[in-house]
Design a protein around this nucleic acid. Sequence first.
DNA 1: GGACTAATCGGAGAGGTTCTCCGGTTGACG
DNA 2: CGTCAACCGGAGAACCTCTCCGATTAGTCC
Lengths: 193, 193
Amino acid sequence: MAKTPAGGARPPRADARRNQERILAAAREAFTRHGVDASLNDIARRAGVGPGTLYRHFPTREALLEAMLADRYHALAGHARDLAGTAPPAEAVPRWLSAFVRDLRAFRGLATSMKNALYDEGSVLFVSCKEMQVAWDVLVVHAQVAGVVRQDASPADLLRLAAALAWATEDLPEDTTEADRLLDLMLTGVMRG
Amino acid sequence: MAKTPAGGARPPRADARRNQERILAAAREAFTRHGVDASLNDIARRAGVGPGTLYRHFPTREALLEAMLADRYHALAGHARDLAGTAPPAEAVPRWLSAFVRDLRAFRGLATSMKNALYDEGSVLFVSCKEMQVAWDVLVVHAQVAGVVRQDASPADLLRLAAALAWATEDLPEDTTEADRLLDLMLTGVMRG
DNA sequence: GGACTAATCGGAGAGGTTCTCCGGTTGACG
DNA sequence: CGTCAACCGGAGAACCTCTCCGATTAGTCC
């Protein structure tokens, strides 16, 4: 009672914090280079810690991913709110989706992890991107009210389709405009008449 | 010269042929149950052969996949030719894509293998589904001439988008109509106005 | 400035995987 | 039947994930 201040645990020890950051840095590099299936063993070695240390800090691969991506999702949530306030819905929707797809193409396999998270409410990643999902929902509903997005396309549908697009283009060169071209195809429709 | 008849190798030995079929049967079951990443070790064990035998018959996982799927691609090619002869393009394109997506949802990971094959001309799977691609090209070009498919959507684009759809819906129940709903969304477009 | 204690470390190791190599076996054919 | 090329299958190397626990060390109290 006197030792542990009201509310919970004491702050982590300095070495723990240091190791956590070194692991995250190594993970960022490894995931970017080898995709989301990069060897966790290897990440631990490059971070200069044992496998045990890595697994204590991040019990699953998904937990490591979540720690790497949390601020990105936070930024995407902010972006959605900004667009809702400043751009007409007919522009806001494609622009946000384009940013979302770009982020999901950061490394191979990320789109797949994202899809799994979106289907699984218990996942850490799901919780981590909930704020983003809420902001996106608002943006889409605005667009539907304005009549620029079909009523039978739910925000979740669009997220899933965008993830699919990121998946479909994930091994194309990073700076390609191919993803945006296919996104446009998807949004405006393939069939005519 | 006298022993090996002109043109190549003699037919495989009976035990070889038998093992090949047992491996294929075990693979079909394992892939259906556990997805495309099922353990090859396990497949060999269930087929009643050693790992060496499996790897001699099918040097890579992709070779095994190809052997399993070749006739399916052949059937899809036939389906495309049939539709080109019997259905108006505005119906033929969605119907064939729907069948393609259904087949790609046969087991988890198949869409990913397909995507990798479509990007890699050297792959066994690529060669194996070339006939299908050709038939599909014809169908799409007809539809473009008839003005029901956008000119800037290439047959390869549509294939890739359909694979993406299969990926996006691969862990939904097998008998769902969700995939067709999203396919319709994609073909007719999300945005209005 | 020590000494104590709980948090933290990191490597050994179990159990899984892919894939190769090679001595023993067997089907097919003269 | 005998011969031999084709074929088999398991041992094993090299990787992976993940756990456990004895050794270490940061932070605190005197």
